[in-house]
């Protein structure tokens, strides 16, 4: 029994996991340990497993994932900063039989694109929105995001984000709870917050993303909104492993994981 060799194990019939065929051969340009890659991977797996690659049209944001279109072997459009929900609306309204998803970061979805986000959600567009929240502007070099935590140091809050001055006069504002906000809108069907920092979380997240696509495929009306609390080790200035630890200790208390709304019903916790 102990005679089994690696060669015996590494055989095509024993293969239990490899990256989705719906990812191109292009190397991710993301920093080592960045959650974007993991999220890309599981979205590709979901599209592959659902067999919807010929019907899917993705919308890439402006931000670190701006070139997401290079990595997915499905049709893709690149949006202006924050406009992805408007693009998704445009496509879905004229091609209601296609599966349309946006992929956006926190600056894109919750700052410059807040109007597009809120109104696509309020109209209840039958689309899937993937929202990667790492509390910072990654691509431009680590400036404050709408979701930056209180006290968190960024390039534009070098002494820590201070929502207000001591006397209560406004300063950087508070971390924007955009996901809670869209959950309040009657147009959102499924709103959930997930993470990808460990294997169990990745598996949960994949289930949520799958549901977010399935709802759309089944022509169930309403926006399917999946937030993924993620990392930015480069701009948080720590190692990937430390960033995932920091995320759990600091991000999750403010952005707790779990379903927030399902079948148009808010989930009370």
């Amino acid at each position: 029994m102990s005679e089994i060799t690696l060669q015996d194990i590494i055989q095509p019939e024993n293969l239990v996991y490899e990256k989705s065929k719906l990812l191109t051969d292009k190397r991710f340009h993301y920093c080592p340990g960045c959650g974007h890659g993991t999220v890309h991977r599981i979205i590709a797996e979901v599209i592959e497993e659902l067999g919807i690659d010929e019907e899917t049209i993705g919308i890439a944001p402006v931000g670190c994932a701006v070139m997401a279109y290079d990595y997915f072997d499905v049709d893709f459009q690149e949006a202006a900063h924050g406009r992805a929900p408007a693009l998704a609306t445009g496509i879905k309204r004229v091609w209601p039989n296609k599966v349309v998803f946006t992929y956006q970061g926190d600056g894109d979805l919750a700052a410059i694109g807040t109007a597009e986000t809120i109104h696509a959600c309020n109209r209840g567009e039958n689309i899937t929105m993937i929202f990667v929240n790492n509390g910072i502007y990654g691509m431009t070099g680590g400036q404050m995001a709408p979701t930056t935590l209180e006290g968190m140091k960024t390039a534009t809050t070098p002494y820590g984000r201070k929502p207000q001055w001591e006397d209560g006069t406004p300063n950087n504002g508070f971390p924007l709870q955009i996901t809670k906000l869209v959950a309040q809108l009657p147009g959102t069907r499924f709103v959930t917050r997930q993470a990808v920092y460990d294997a169990a979380k990745v598996r949960n997240c994949k289930k949520a993303i799958k549901k977010a696509f399935q709802n759309q495929m089944e022509n169930k009306n309403g926006v399917n909104f999946v937030e993924i609390v993620s990392n930015c080790n480069s701009n948080w200035k720590m190692s990937a492993v430390d960033a995932n630890k920091w995320l759990q200790e600091n991000m999750l208390p403010v952005y707790p994981l779990g379903d927030i709304k399902d079948n148009f019903e808010l989930i009370n916790k």
Binding site: I4, I10, L15, V16, Y17, E18, G37, T38, R41, A199
Partner: peptide, 15 residues
Amino acid sequence: CAVTCPDGVIKVYKK
């Protein structure tokens, strides 16, 4: 390992 790998560089075999 493979499901958490951000770059999808790990193939897993199981016997």
